[in-house]
Nucleic acid binder design. Sequence first.
DNA 1: TATTTGCCTCTTATCGACAAAAACCAACTT
DNA 2: AAGTTGGTTTTTGTCGATAAGAGGCAAATA
Lengths: 314, 314
Amino acid sequence: MKTDTVFKRAYNDALGFIAGLPEGEILPSENALGRRLGVSRTTARKVVLALVAHGVISQGSERKILRRPDVIEERFPESETVPMSAQVERQFMDWLLRDDPRPGTTINERELARRFGVATTGIREFLNRFQRFGLIDKRPNAGWVFRGFTTSFALELFEVREMYEVRSAIAFAALPENSPLWRDVEALRREHEELLGHVAERYREFSDLDSRFHLLINSAAPNRFIDSFYDLITLIFHYHYKWNKRDERQRNEVAIKEHLTYMDALRSRNRGIIELACRAHLTSARESFMRSTQFRGETAAGRPKAERAAKQIP
Amino acid sequence: MKTDTVFKRAYNDALGFIAGLPEGEILPSENALGRRLGVSRTTARKVVLALVAHGVISQGSERKILRRPDVIEERFPESETVPMSAQVERQFMDWLLRDDPRPGTTINERELARRFGVATTGIREFLNRFQRFGLIDKRPNAGWVFRGFTTSFALELFEVREMYEVRSAIAFAALPENSPLWRDVEALRREHEELLGHVAERYREFSDLDSRFHLLINSAAPNRFIDSFYDLITLIFHYHYKWNKRDERQRNEVAIKEHLTYMDALRSRNRGIIELACRAHLTSARESFMRSTQFRGETAAGRPKAERAAKQIP
DNA sequence: TATTTGCCTCTTATCGACAAAAACCAACTT
DNA sequence: AAGTTGGTTTTTGTCGATAAGAGGCAAATA
């Protein structure tokens, strides 16, 4: 059966929303509430019912807020508010990182299902969606193979990334003076400078900034295929940052400076300069990426134990 | 339960294989047979059992071919040899073409399941895989929306295609003299010339040639992301050719000539010339593609009935 | 010793069931 | 008339079951 994560998340959100309201206030209509919580009226109604049952709002058609903070803190645990599919993704990535299977390892739907505590259907669905990221292959009637975080995976990924980004950067430069994106660049530049000033303590915040920066460049000329490729970039980097902490501060500092140069180049509107800065940054990003992780050769041959251990999550 | 399409296809193939063998010959081992049919020994064994039951080969451990042509013609119907997933794809594309839903139309898993005669799971799985082609979007808990064969779909598709192909063509020119791919180009060139000579009757064969040509260019520098994008190109063009017959002969003739010029350019090894020929061909292909089909604007607004009818399968 | 075959186990493909969530409808309120 | 609510219908998300197919082991054969 369906899980009720939607309801639980909505309920939690509703509590947060109510906490910010004065006591005695009348609750908004079911429709309005649903809109605010991002759910259908059916679910909003269920939330209202639960709120009444918990004594957070008054019974009857009145629906006044009673505000019982002690109860208000009784939320559903985080883990019950995230839909199964999202949980599978997380568990799968964690499994990938932790177990560190070598290229060519076959992936067993049934075993993953057991391990993750879900039905095989859920795993299947995830793998089917995940397939587009080029890390796994399907062999009909015989499961999936993990292609591995190989050198060629990284190279192919960055090759396409560079093609896309150079194209977007050049398109960006061609934006009209009054495009709101120019203001976004300036705002982002300030954030970069700010972060650079406190890089020693706050270098971890770069990951988010990085993602926003490249997404901004990309938004100059939207293309669904390019956008969807960024899902992959985001995913990989998200987990990459999580699992690899070596030289993180230094790597990030270098990248921040490159971003600044890159933004200067954009300002210049000069195509040649932009392309140069863009490629320089991406090349550097690729090398730091590959240096920081133990990418493997293509063969399924083993490698020393020590090397394996280096990739474990700290 | 699983369908037995694998077995049925294997059985049909086995009959074809046996038909080419002299009477009285001994059937190869189960392992060898399985390998030849592209199936596990378990299935090969099942095939052998069925062959015996139908009197095509002798009973016992002998397994001599009895060759009863009348029985040999009793194959399983085509439709029972194609796995459900493939059938869903075909039916979905046909539905897309025939019903011609407008952009923004919601897709109903349950209804498709009913219509296609499969369980919803099958539809879900297909839609999840199909999602990467950028034609549908998922709205959690509320089904899918068809984004439509819009102008922007075509433009975005061709933009990426051009980026990829120019990159591959240039990589192609850099191949060493002795690369076997050069021989493939020459062979393909001869096929083009041959086809051009009989274009009036055989213009339909171009579709296949086109696909092979671009795949060849692409194979100069393999990249999994680019390769996977070609799946989309192939799919779209496959169905495009099926549903759009307007000016087909003329369009194909033009394209053949462009391919020839393109191949000349490759021979020259000159980067500038190659890029020119490549872009010229792709631009022309894009325009012919867009002219030949009624691509719509982005809005969900209606359009005249006559225009709709033009897209029906003849 | 290397195949071939018989038997057995494990995995995948596909279905149907069912609760959660969305969508619809009609009576009701303001 | 526009919006709100109660009740009903439809659709999606998730599960478990089961036959088809893959793969492994060991006895038999060559």
